[in-house]
């Protein structure tokens, strides 16, 4: 798993939800652990698309329940982009 993407995503979640960076680890659930509701998730997705130059369609967002899921998706999307 890309440490660089994890750190970038953690910075975004911190910006949107105020969660301490150290608490944003791969196994954490956006909804259950990080206080990211559906509106905040849209903000996180928008910021990820801008930061990592990938596209995350709405249909994929529901599959990204943990930080690790998102990092993995961004990693793969970045390779194929």
């Amino acid at each position: 798993m890309s440490q660089q993407i994890l750190e970038g995503l953690a910075a975004i979640v911190n910006e949107v939800a105020g969660t301490p960076i150290a608490d944003i680890t791969p196994e954490k659930s956006f909804v259950d652990d990080l206080d990211i509701d559906s509106l905040s998730m849209v903000e996180v997705v928008m910021a990820c698309e801008d930061k990592f130059g990938v596209s995350i369609p709405d249909g994929e967002v529901k599959n990204l329940s943990t930080v690790g899921d998102a990092v993995t998706y961004i990693e793969k999307a970045g390779v194929t982009a």
Partner: peptide
């Protein structure tokens, strides 16, 4: 449109 904030209505 994809960069319009989801908080804009509230």
């Amino acid at each position: 449109w994809s960069r319009v904030s989801p908080m804009s209505v509230p």
